[in-house]
Nucleic acid binder design. Sequence first.
DNA 1: TTTT
DNA 2: TTTT
Lengths: 149, 149, 149, 149
Amino acid sequence: MAGSVNKVILIGNLGKDPEVRHLENGVVVANFSIATSETFTDKNTGQKREITDWHNIVVWRGLAKVVESYVKKGMKVYVEGKLKTRSWQDEQKNTRYTTEVVADNLTMLTRAEPATNQSENQYPKSIEENKSQPMTQSIQPEEEDDLPF
Amino acid sequence: MAGSVNKVILIGNLGKDPEVRHLENGVVVANFSIATSETFTDKNTGQKREITDWHNIVVWRGLAKVVESYVKKGMKVYVEGKLKTRSWQDEQKNTRYTTEVVADNLTMLTRAEPATNQSENQYPKSIEENKSQPMTQSIQPEEEDDLPF
Amino acid sequence: MAGSVNKVILIGNLGKDPEVRHLENGVVVANFSIATSETFTDKNTGQKREITDWHNIVVWRGLAKVVESYVKKGMKVYVEGKLKTRSWQDEQKNTRYTTEVVADNLTMLTRAEPATNQSENQYPKSIEENKSQPMTQSIQPEEEDDLPF
Amino acid sequence: MAGSVNKVILIGNLGKDPEVRHLENGVVVANFSIATSETFTDKNTGQKREITDWHNIVVWRGLAKVVESYVKKGMKVYVEGKLKTRSWQDEQKNTRYTTEVVADNLTMLTRAEPATNQSENQYPKSIEENKSQPMTQSIQPEEEDDLPF
DNA sequence: TTTT
DNA sequence: TTTT
């Protein structure tokens, strides 16, 4: 179909570290999920309540490598991409559907630190060295809080 | 969580007429799906191929009434809303998930004609006359209140 | 500055045919403006009124060539791009500012017909025939290549 | 015109504290500007360069009151709104144009501290105490009514 | 599973 | 005028 648009814009925090796979052909894929939330007033109780939505994000190739190196649990990110629903077979041979956001733009809104498999902060030296490397392409770290006003 | 954004922007065509339900409390809900597509070149064959994605749209209340009256199969619409994934139980008591776009803004990009139950094109005269009228204006939701999505 | 986003999404109709320039270095630039409008109720008179906003669009290179060939006065287009404000000197040597949308994505929402210099509707037959052809496909910037999502 | 869309999405930092005016009819308006930037490689020198764009933001009513209380110089914000160009007369009676983003949604991406008139960091004690409070939640406009932009 |  |  001609003349269509498919665009998703999200800002949210990662619930876990990304899962990164290096495919046999050398292509890299990263998956992670981010939470957004909204507050509303419960009609019955009059109380404020918060609803959290979780969004599955997929990134490919160069962007996946950046995610592998810099994006991790708890960080806030801006994600721009397309909605894609893919089908798969479950164990009972039912067709099931999963909707994901295939991101083609990602900006970190939290200060970046190199991601590690040991997310409990025991960085090996090689990762420390990454700290002094320039950031890859359009993706840059960002200071979110503690501004010196 | 503070500081999150959840926004989807789609332009696509309806595959079928919307399904509209009038709930017992008087609230109206409309569901429909729209297709977006993108073309890409198949790496192996060098051929152009088209991938179509289908998106489930939900609209509530006043916007649902407009959909009921004016939006139907084949029309192209602009939809703006939020990504929501809801869980439900299938017959085998498995938890399953469906992702939808809950729209809070909808603009018809095809000239509107009143929707009918006879979507097979037997328009009464008054509707034929509408064909020469200018396109219906942009539609906004009348309220943004505590919705139980 | 890291972590910034600059995005504009417009759907509107062209007021005039685009102006296209071929620069000495071979680069092509196209300029055109599109109108969006919104209706509101005048507080004093209770009357519905419509406000029209005009937006200056700039497209470069391959996208400008497509605009040159297919986009013309009256067509409805989807435009996605960045806000840019540039300064210039008027005749009295005052610094003045013009804000434009530099588009990197453009989709025709009106059935495309090849643009002509005779925009006053004296279409040669070959263009009339185009009227029955399916809408021209979505136009993407050059860098969107064969991705196997 | 029917079927139009006018949407701007920005993430950037405020260059100065907002200017807030309380109009005679009680309506509040806030103006501020935010910077976005992008980096690119200079074709001639091969050097990385950064271009900063400044965007004029206007917010009305309830949202302006929140800006008055919480948003200030240096903070990073998400802004969603409409592009509006208004004309005015300069001293030489030339018609000039200014383009602004009239925001209807604003989310602080920096931890909020109450704005003060003394923006030179002489916080009274009560405001220091506020520093330990959680970030203000996402801010929505309380109404979308007949605005005289 | 995140975040305030 | 911001930010890194």
